[in-house]
Design a protein around this nucleic acid. Structure first.
Lengths: 200, 200
DNA sequence: TTAAATAAGATACATTTTGTATCTTTATGC
DNA sequence: GCATAAAGATACAAAATGTATCTTATTTAA
């Protein structure tokens, strides 16, 4: 979809290129050591292009991670959720889908997103995105639990925050013990944590 | 304990001053925008002092957060843990002590610690510290559960990773929903998560 | 199809930060 | 009190910043 007849990139083409150059640099350069100079060189453009859009590399990073994290927060992966006939299977599928999205976006990117979030409390745009995501997560959990109840499984009433547990678990695992994540670990989360918490 | 008769600071006195100047700057300057110049000025010393110790602000930050996080990882707050006569009370005390340590050190500092950790996988010193901490956490949980079992409470056998749940919960809460933390929230964690997970 | 508008890219310049090196001064330990 | 180690001051070339101006390519709309 990229126009190759033009040598001078514009708009979103250029923006993508800047994003990618920055992400690529984070493989070798620590986040705290990034400079506009390097980014401009990596993206084959001039520094002016960067200064017209952002005042510091921090702002650029913030924009990138907000953008990249969108897929995690739009909750579109929930569309693949099926009623598997048991809460156990539904939970496992939920964790698997969520973890796959983490993997697809890249755990480092999401970790960085959450880090920048703590650095900047007045980011209303991201806050809105995050708030909507939490709403979607809650509604998804409510639906899963409702289905289970309809099937006759005994479901406990819990506070709303507790409904965030599956997502909290995946986030923690990717931040603290990323090397630990596999099918067995997800199954253990369901068996030893989620089922005891949400069922009698 | 600070010597005031000397105008020229040395060793740990100077180091403390550099650490404090850096931390102070992080109130106004984003982590990714810190410079040695600023830090030297803030600490009333010369840049040479900084370059003799670290090559980039990132390294300095890493050292600071490793140092500050020590108190969280040495597990000394566990000494205050008593046998309260019920698992419910023991869990609540554990969460309270852990959260108080978070508060004392500063949640931002610990969040930053974990972030830098993801940026640098080859930090053997911190890895050792972290590994020892996990060991201590596991042993503490085992002790608490053992006490409960001795009292006659029905305790489930779970994987080691699951024993990290109390600490994972507090970490998540401080990273994602810091405004949400109070006595009620901790009680809900015990009631709706920890007790169902660890007892029959 | 051409002209006007818009944004990219090149360049320049003063300022700040970096990284290194050298020298002087102060504090500490023997 | 003297030797040693480390702090602090200073200097300098190189890199990065922040801003401004000018040229050139691409888009839009007349």
């Amino acid at each position: 979809m990229t126009k190759q007849k033009n040598s001078r990139r514009r708009g979103n083409d250029l923006l993508d290129s800047l994003y990618n150059a920055t992400i690529k640099l984070t493989d070798t350069v620590k986040l705290t050591n990034l400079t506009f100079q390097q980014i401009a060189e990596e993206a084959n453009t001039s520094r002016a292009v960067l200064y017209r859009r952002w005042t510091t590399p921090f702002e650029l990073l913030q924009e990138i991670y907000n953008y990249k994290a969108k897929e995690l927060f739009d909750g579109s992966f929930f569309d693949k959720l099926k009623d598997n006939g048991s809460l156990r299977s539904d939970f496992l599928q939920l964790l698997t889908l969520f973890q796959n999205t983490y993997k697809k976006i890249g755990a480092e990117i999401i970790n960085n997103y959450y880090f920048l979030r703590t650095q900047d409390s007045d980011n209303s745009q991201e806050t809105e995105m995050h708030k909507n995501a939490v709403e979607k997560y809650l509604r998804t959990m409510e639906r899963i639990l409702q289905n289970a109840e309809t099937r006759g499984e005994k479901i406990k009433k819990v506070h709303h925050v507790t409904l965030m547990l599956p997502f909290d678990l995946i986030r923690t695992e990717n931040l603290i013990r990323p090397e630990n994540i596999n099918k067995n670990r997800l199954a253990t989360m369901v068996e030893e944590v989620l089922l005891p918490v949400f069922t009698e």
